[in-house]
Design a protein around this nucleic acid. Structure first.
Lengths: 199, 199
DNA sequence: ATACGAATTGAACAACGTTCAATATCAAGG
DNA sequence: CCTTGATATTGAACGTTGTTCAATTCGTAT
């Protein structure tokens, strides 16, 4: 049976992605199975393989939407008077996003391709934008900093905060070591700011 | 067939753990399957369930050995003149351990119990010792710091470095953002030291 | 109306963790 | 030495999983 009239291919694709996203958000990445997605959109499992290469690709698409949402949250952070406040605002936005979307964020952190492959370029582009928000603030701290140094510094800040938050969010080893997360991130941002302000 | 004469239960247990460790170290956690472990030790899959509750328990035992090894590496770090050097030495030891034992460390970071359960107490004890090494150095930076504050500060340092290194080591999202890891960790340690030294 | 291409299906395959009745072996008691 | 009871071990089986693919069905163009 071919029901090409009910939905066009593109519709079907987004239906599948949204169903997968719903499953991940509610029950976690490990519950996102081909059969369950298929059931939720009313198609057979095999159909998914006409839309996507893998389940991996589908998971990547879900993660892409999550990254997009975080990026949108960043763009809605109101401007601040001081760069220090701006960094704190960004970090707060980050933290509240990851706690509001715990399972989706967890999926982003824990997802692994089955066959090792380099991350898609749009993935890296998204990350670049995220770090770009930090880098932009750095120009206010130190306008004379070279482009490369600013980018590096932004990555350093981003990675250290992302690291703490990921350890806290993941159900992994060291969760108990990063409590309270909020204060730890706040203090870490302060330390970075102090370091940027000259000394 | 019951071959109780060939190996006693405890021997069999360590045989299984070591086989599992070998598999993880060579081919990664995802290759550690009951059937493969059983084949490597020359027993049937079912036997493993006489020794361990789950495969999860077996994975935990493997991770325990990895944590032990890291702890031993920490204890072999030679003493340093300044606390700053001591922190750097600790961080270097951490980094070289995680890169020398990439897959084992990765297993530690990515492992998830199937049925959610609180981490065993010895797990937390191990982590406590790791952070204890940092805390000890902090007394040299600021002898007057209260016990609680010192512990918190140690966790902050440890978690931020662990975070960066885990993001770098994991095949996850943000790997490209944490290059070069060595320099990032070094700089981060320096920033923490600066912050501790007063400013 | 017919034929062709493509979408869809669902059964099938291999692999996984886990269970459990059946079996083989050991240790002890008569 | 044989019997008995307890326990270790097995391997087939179950229910999952991702993925494939021949068969089927539909839309569209001729």
């Amino acid at each position: 049976m071919a029901r090409r009239s009910e939905h066009k291919r593109s519709e079907l694709t987004t239906m599948a992605i949204k169903a997968a996203e719903r499953i991940v958000a509610n029950d976690g990445l490990e519950q996102m199975s081909a059969r369950r997605i298929a059931k939720e959109i009313g198609y057979a499992p095999g159909t998914l393989y006409n839309l996507f290469e893998d389940l991996d690709e589908l998971a990547l698409r879900v993660n892409a939407r999550t990254l997009d949402a975080l990026l949108r949250a960043f763009e809605e952070v109101p401007p601040c008077d001081t760069p220090r406040d701006a960094l704190h605002a960004l970090a707060d936005s980050y933290l509240s996003f990851t706690s509001d979307n715990r399972r989706l964020w967890d999926a982003l952190l824990t997802f692994r391709r089955n066959k090792p492959a380099p991350p898609p370029q749009w993935y890296l582009a998204h990350l670049g934008k995220l770090v770009g928000h930090v880098a932009e603030i750095l120009t206010r701290f130190r306008p004379t900093l070279s482009e490369a140094e600013r980018a590096y510094r932004a990555r350093l800040i981003w990675a250290s905060i992302h690291g703490i938050s990921s350890v806290a969010n993941a159900g992994s080893v060291a969760r108990s070591l990063v409590t309270p997360v909020d204060r730890m991130v706040h203090d870490l941002v302060d330390i970075h700011c102090n370091s940027l302000e000259g000394r």
